[in-house]
Design a protein around this nucleic acid. Structure first.
Lengths: 367, 367
DNA sequence: CTGAAAGCGCTAACAA
DNA sequence: TTGTTAGCGCTTTCAG
């Protein structure tokens, strides 16, 4: 009331004490009201709430969590911020967080390349009530530290080898299977596959889906067409380049384990003078927003990224609420999104045309 | 040492006390060592650091900031996470933050549409040492709250009407001027302009640059070709659509105040059966990563987004270190990036061809 | 149902 | 140079 323009000393102008004074109760009671404790007389509660309103009180999260309460903050650990993959997931996360009145700390995992478990430790020590980990991170070190502390966390698009973590993922196997089959239906038999880092479960699942589809289409897996990547555009570029230059006969289609490496593959193909999709078909995985911007528009396997973020938050909050719930695993459906980067296998081109089986595949066309 | 698997009770296992005990000093001394206080005996410091190392101590930020210290956290308030604009800026921010050992809270400004100043208040109340605000936010309400508390903050790509805030921006006027001139050099005279929200300074500056260039090129400003947008793709689409359908003669070039609305403009143009750049030229502003992915690749005015993030952090930390420094304003250079979305004005098309002045403009070609 | 009091882990005077 | 001692604002027993 009489704060005549003196230099602000306290960071926090209006505290729980002020509210207590204004409403004539002890500050413990104010705390009760604020934390929704049920055994408070209705009239008291009202008086307190009025004071809160009137004074414009906002809780100090640090104090709250120091004292043992919830900080109402969750941490999000992401590999980087380069592409819209993370952005899209984060949008889902944010939506759900708003609803639950939580705030978000953003951590980037490249921060402490040397001492990662210490880093995670710091996070867990700190002010977050729980942690969301977005693929593709190197998991083991992190997760051990977390589990040891019984700290709530959820993995997004990246399963845990030990099956001991809560996970939100998509039908990676299925998605890869469908994509591969689609390529096969277009007449392709020399389908290269660029994997993700095979330390990551989802990357392995996609690889398996690819191989399974090949098997079902009676196409033998040619190991020289399967190369381990790391979900980076640059790597996708390099792999495709070498695939195109040194494998004979070269692949007529490239299935990249994520859109980013598919972009790299497109770059490489173009650089080799190939037309997409006429000379070579390229398919990706994720369906990040850029996929429909590139030329030609990328055919890809859509993951419901935003939804994955939402679900992850729900799971995490659930876990924060009820510590010690057994880890859950949610798998959302992927969907083949057909755009412009894949075409029928062209026999008339000057290639060592081999056993071209007639496919009978219908020409799917969507989006 | 002997923490035989009992249920974790304290969140924080090893505190400053433990370190004190282990190194045989008072915990105040430990605090001094940790905060880099200079008058500590070398040997003491070493002993403490050893204990820290050995015990794997990590500071509790909440306690620290509650007690009046730095929280080593800064807040980043962004409008959304849809595009890579924010991602790119954030990358710069993150880089600089790592260096300074700061962490990041991510706030989205659409969170409390009703009560924004309260929201900002909560942030300022909370655990952040300072705040970074990314355009285009509605400024006034926010900033007043912040300034009133003498809370450190820096605006990114968005100047303050009152000139009382620290700002990192780019040469908006200049960039828009060059882009417009470039279009004029290509022979265009009917150049539409899609603005940003004109409440934002940078949007106004771009508009001014556009008009200035037109004036210098002896092209009269036609107000029906200047339409206020809001930096959204959808809006860019709608504006362009109506521009193309209801203005006669229609523009032969569209200058969108940011890349996102330029994308929208491209969509609209295509939908009207126009070829880019043959039938219509489109130019953007920002040069977000997507700009080089779209078809055709977008000619645009590049803002050094990543660098802007870095600079903003430096300014903010400076401000946190020395409260009460007068607000600074840093302006970084933009650069015209010529790609494929702009072409020479075609007179031979069935249009009301008018005063086509010969331009003598050289055909710039880059990237 | 409500108040009193003990901290949470740390920083910052103030002494020594 | 180092130790002692208040709190920071809040949650949580424990008593009324």
């Amino acid at each position: 009331m009489n704060n005549a323009g003196n230099p602000p000393k306290k960071k926090h102008s209006v505290t729980i004490m002020d509210v207590a004074r204004a409403s004539g109760v002890s500050y413990a009671t104010v705390s009760r009201v604020l934390s929704g404790y049920e055994f408070v007389r209705e009239s008291t509660r009202n008086r307190v709430m009025e004071a809160v309103e009137h004074l414009g009180y906002v809780a100090n999260l640090q104090a709250r969590s120091l004292a043992g309460g919830r900080s109402q903050i969750i941490g999000l650990l992401v590999p980087n911020l380069d592409n819209t993959y993370v952005g899209t997931v984060t949008r889902g996360i944010d939506q759900e967080l708003v609803r639950a009145n939580y705030d978000l700390m953003l951590y980037t995992s490249h921060r402490h390349p040397g001492n990662e478990s210490l880093y995670v430790n710091a996070i867990a020590n700190g002010l977050t009530d729980g942690l969301l980990l977005v693929a593709p991170l190197v998991p083991t070190t992190y997760l051990d530290a977390l589990r040891e502390r019984n700290f709530p966390y959820v993995l997004i698009d990246q399963a845990d080898a030990t099956e001991n973590s809560s996970v939100v993922e998509a039908t990676n196997w299925q998605g890869a299977y469908e994509a591969t089959r689609y390529l096969s239906q277009l007449g392709h038999t020399r389908i290269a596959f660029i994997t993700g880092a095979l330390a990551v479960r989802s990357a392995v699942d996609r690889l398996r889906g690819y191989k399974a589809a090949l098997a079902d289409c009676d196409i033998p897996v040619r190991e020289e067409l399967v190369i381990e990547g790391d979900y980076q555009q640059q790597t996708g570029y390099e792999i495709t380049k070498s695939l195109l230059q040194s494998v004979d006969p070269p692949p007529t289609a490239v299935f990249a384990s994520n859109d980013l490496s598919a972009f790299g593959a497109m770059d490489a193909a173009r650089e080799c003078g190939l037309l997409i999709p006429d000379d070579i078909s390229i398919i990706g995985f994720d369906d990040i927003p850029q996929a429909s911007l590139v030329c030609p528009k990328l055919t890809t396997v859509r993951q419901p990224l935003e939804q994955m973020g939402q679900v992850a938050v729900k799971m995490l909050l659930e876990q924060i609420e009820h510590r010690g719930r057994p880890p859950q695993r949610v798998t959302l459906a992927t969907q083949l999104v057909i755009r412009d980067s894949c075409g029928l296998y062209q026999t008339q081109r000057g290639e060592h045309s081999k056993t071209l089986k007639s496919t009978g595949g219908s020409l799917l066309r969507t989006n």
